[in-house]
Design a protein around this nucleic acid. Structure first.
Lengths: 195, 195
DNA sequence: GTCTATACGCTGATAGAC
DNA sequence: GTCTATCAGCGTATAGAC
């Protein structure tokens, strides 16, 4: 699933999306006005409207790359043979993604505006179901369903919690992954069971 | 710590706080206007302003009971003898609180407006540090620090995730508690080690 | 406790000049 | 691409009548 098909990048556009993400992370989507974005960029609101026709379009553009990444993770994971291998691939992919984009995670999962927006796109709803299935495997026990939800929350928190800011990427990645495995009752996988 | 000292309840006031919480949970604090609150109540904005002098006051009043509850949990937990017993008391107290107030958790931990507000009150910052220390124990390994953060995220998600809506309180409580213990690498505690 | 009326800044959004 | 100018509507908040 490619959400931002063939849209020419443009440095100004990328800059706008970057400051928008920063502001969304601090104030939430509803708490961020186009004026704020324009101020940080040092331009006027009208200049912002030149690149995006509405606020919703900005939100979608901010979220799109992450959604694409998650979709790619799901694609790769689903290509594996065993449920355990699929889960492992999804898990490590998600953890990597979160660690590499710490700011983004909170905006994606916690912001009610983004949540509503995502719920309006059937593709995104289906994507989150796919991820859920990958993490729990088929016919999961209730305990594992709750565990999978907690994994989602735990990964989200990694982007928000100031306590975790001191961790470097590699350490955070390792601890998040091992925490997620404990939640899902997965033994640290050996090497032989790839693909 | 009692945040709402000696304020007479008043049925209208309680009703207002309840609908405010519902709206905050769906739209976020910034995304909820006083007009929305007034509309649901079937009154005008001015009627809302009769009971609270500002929107911030409403937010604080919504959050206050939960903050008090958390403070009481911390007090009780810190009165225990061993670190393990303190952690266990804090954990089960928090899980109970979250399960009994599913709507509230997301608003409390995920909303950026609430986060900023809380950061302005030193008492609340200190409270969240106390909870963190109770969960990790003294001198925690990095793994446990990340685990404690994930517990926070996991509990928050319990109030937001529609996947978990089907669970009844008792089942959700049990699974959240066992998930949290796995994250913190705690064995299910025996009976003899209370107080 | 609730109402009407009012204040004024800021919101998202548009039109047209440079 | 950015600007100025402008719009209607809504945001929080106040004053005063019932």
């Amino acid at each position: 699933m490619t959400t931002h098909v063939g849209r020419p990048a443009g440095a100004a556009r990328e800059r706008l999306l970057s400051v928008a993400l920063d502001l969304f992370a601090v104030h939430g989507v509803s708490g961020t006005s186009l004026q704020m974005i324009a101020d940080v960029l040092g331009v006027t609101k009208a200049a912002v409207y030149h690149q995006f026709q509405s606020k919703e379009e900005i939100v979608l553009a901010v979220v799109a790359p992450a959604v694409d990444s998650v979709a790619r993770i799901a694609d790769l994971a689903e290509a594996r043979r065993s449920p355990a291998s699929r889960r492992e691939a999804a898990l490590s992919g998600l953890v990597d993604l979160v660690v590499k984009n710490r700011r983004l995670a909170a905006v994606l999962r916690a912001d009610p505006t983004v949540g509503q927006l995502i719920r309006e796109y059937p593709d995104m709803v289906e994507l989150s179901r796919r991820i859920g299935r990958l993490l729990t495997g088929p016919d999961p026990a209730p305990e594992i369903v709750v565990g999978a939800a907690m994994v989602g929350g735990g990964l989200m928190i990694a982007g928000m919690d100031p306590t975790l800011a001191e961790f470097d990427d590699e350490a955070l990645r390792r601890h998040l992954l091992s925490g997620a495995r404990r939640l899902l009752r997965v033994r640290t996988p050996g090497v032989g069971q790839q693909t």
